[in-house]
Simulated scan of single mutants.
Amino acid sequence: MSKKFAGCMPLALALATCAAHAESGVRVSGYLDVSMERIDTGRGMLTRQSSGQLNQSRLNFQGVEDLGGGNAAVFDLQMPFSPDTGAGSSNGLFSRTATLGLTSKALGTLKVGRMQSLSDETIASFWALRWGASTNYFLYYGNTTQLLSNAIRYETPDMRGLVLSVEYAVDEHNGSGRAVEGQARYQYDKWKVNGAYYVSHGHEFVEPGSSVHIGTFGTSYDFGFATPSLMVQDTRTHDAVVNRTSKISVALSATVPVGRNALWLDYGILHNRVLANANARAASVRFDYNLSKRTFLYAGLAQVWNDAKAYYQPMGASGSYPVFTSATGVSTGFDPVYNGGDVRSLIAGIRMAF
């Protein structure tokens, strides 16, 4: 359960003061997500306890200061950790999100810091950045676009369901490295559309002149008895040496209410346009059983069929692969040891929001 610490602590100071600053405060929230997974890696069996398969386990601190006139100062700090080990992230204390900004009902929102990419936010808006979603399995290898440091983002106000965003980031380790993204999202009643385009130069690779282009599109409609969705992601990379990729993934999924619970179904394909015999297919089914409004149990089965030079795996929201492979999958496939192996994952876990 989220908890607010308002700036109006002494009630005797006057209820009028509290009313004038009702939007000000700090909210503490987060997720705990732990699961057991049995995996057929295609080369052997693996059993592991892991964290963050549906939601990355984290502690959030989000604050608002009302500046009056529909304006406010905002911050968002998100600290990831692993309940299975108790360890925090090796990338830093608030490595998931650390932003400070200003928001206005009339002018929109401007924020700076470390934040999620617009491409990944597009995927997450359709609940596809988690275990059971083939789009998540087929993401650009390495998840390098998930979080951007030294970033600045502007988001327009809601214009009758349409919101536009732009994000820019520089690489502090490579002065010439930069990334820019644009996003448009629209919602009308039960229909939702979201698209983003990401371009970077020298931001992911060490070699100067490298580039990454990622286009992401999703749409869904809530029919009541089911919410089907379509996700498409096109990825093109190139570096100054010889490596390049060009691939597209398409995923169809549906969330089906079963009483107060939910059934998730997903099927996706990936086509590699550069490397022969490097395509993949994936299918998943997952059932979420609600214990309360904030806590549910989940269980599922996922299968990935890899071609001879591919090795994609079921992956959760925290980005943890069951098997770490030695190659990057850019021009030679993934790893000669695992290439071509079909991967199966059986999972059971519990997720709690607070």
Score class of each variant (00 low, 15 high):
C8G: 11
A128S: 12
A12N: 08
V337E: 06
A280Q: 06
A133S: 15
A278N: 07
G25H: 08
R160K: 08
R351G: 05
D288E: 09
A262V: 01
G52L: 11
V166K: 03
P10N: 11
E207H: 08
G319W: 13
T245L: 10
G316F: 09
T17K: 11
A184F: 10
T325E: 04
L77R: 03
H21E: 12
E155L: 06
N306I: 05
S117E: 05
V180G: 08
N339S: 05
L118W: 07
T122P: 11
A254G: 03
N55E: 13
E181R: 05
Q56R: 12
F138W: 08
N150M: 03
S51Y: 09
A6W: 07
Y321I: 02
G175C: 01
A282D: 03
P322I: 05
G101E: 00
R351A: 06
T85S: 14
Y312L: 10
G349A: 06
N143A: 09
A262W: 00
L110E: 01
G224P: 10
E207R: 13
F354N: 06
G42H: 10
Y197E: 05
A133K: 10
L147D: 00
A283C: 04
L147M: 05
L110P: 03
E23Q: 15
V74E: 08
D171T: 07
R96S: 03
S165P: 02
I214G: 00
G224W: 05
L46W: 04
W191A: 10
V258Q: 01
Q187E: 06
V112A: 14
L129I: 05
Q183S: 11
I269G: 06
L93P: 00
A20E: 13
Q146H: 09
H21V: 06
A299K: 10
A302I: 02
S331Q: 12
L297S: 02
R130Q: 15
I347H: 09
W264L: 12
Y267G: 12
A184Q: 08
C18P: 01
D307P: 02
S345N: 14
T41W: 09
G101N: 00
A87L: 04
M79S: 13
M352T: 15
F296Y: 15
F225E: 03
S50G: 15
K190R: 13
I123R: 04
D66V: 12
S104R: 02
N306K: 01
V256K: 09
A348G: 15
V212N: 06
G329S: 07
S249D: 13
S246M: 09
M9Q: 08
L164M: 12
L148A: 10
V285Q: 07
G69D: 04
S210T: 04
G300S: 11
Y197A: 11
V34R: 11
D40M: 11
R273M: 11
M159A: 13
R114K: 15
V170Y: 02
G329L: 03
L252E: 04
S246I: 03
D189Y: 09
R160C: 01
N272R: 04
G132W: 04
G30Q: 11
G69E: 03
A106Q: 12
D335S: 05
L32K: 04
P228G: 09
P314T: 03
N243T: 14
A73Y: 02
W131E: 12
A128Y: 01
S125L: 04
L110M: 05
F334M: 12
T145W: 07
A73W: 02
S253R: 14
I214S: 05
S292F: 00
H21P: 02
A19M: 12
L297E: 02
